[in-house]
Amino acid sequence: MAKNSLLVPQASAALDRLKFEVASELGIQFSQDGYNGDLTTYNAGKIGGSITRRLVEIAEQSLGGAQTFRK
């Protein structure tokens, strides 16, 4: 059983599109055959961090531009 199961299963396709979009923007190529075991931890972290940043921005916008708290 996966720990990271989606709360909204219908969001899976949108998250996949976002993953490929972010990777493309960062210049990171995914394998055409679906195997990405050679993806470096650094690049995977860049993709994940960028996705998280983008999702936070989307959430802030949907909340009406709520104030962002940064250190």
Rank of each mutant, 00 (worst) to 15 (best):
D16Q: 13
E21Y: 12
R54C: 00
Q32Y: 10
S62N: 15
D33I: 11
S5E: 15
G48H: 05
A59I: 07
A23P: 06
T52I: 10
D16T: 10
S62C: 11
Q29D: 11
D33Y: 09
K46Y: 00
S5P: 00
T52V: 12
L63I: 05
L39G: 03
G37F: 04
K71Q: 04
A23R: 00
L18Y: 06
D33Q: 09
V8C: 10
Q32M: 11
L63T: 01
T68H: 01
R70D: 06
G45R: 12
L18D: 10
Q10K: 14
E60N: 07
L15F: 13
G49Q: 03
N4Q: 13
R17C: 04
A23E: 02
A11R: 02
Q67D: 10
S31F: 05
G45P: 04
I28Q: 08
T52W: 08
G27L: 01
G49E: 04
A11Q: 08
N4M: 12
V56L: 14
Q61K: 15
V56C: 01
A66R: 13
F69L: 11
I28N: 03
L26G: 05
A13T: 11
G45I: 02
F69D: 00
V56W: 06
T52D: 08
I28A: 03
N36C: 05
I47N: 00
I51E: 04
S5W: 12
T68P: 01
F30V: 02
R17M: 09
F20T: 14
A66C: 04
Y42P: 01
N4F: 14
T40C: 00
E25A: 09
A11M: 07
Q67N: 09
L18V: 11
Y42Q: 12
R54V: 05
K3L: 13
Y35S: 10
A59C: 08
G27F: 01
E25P: 02
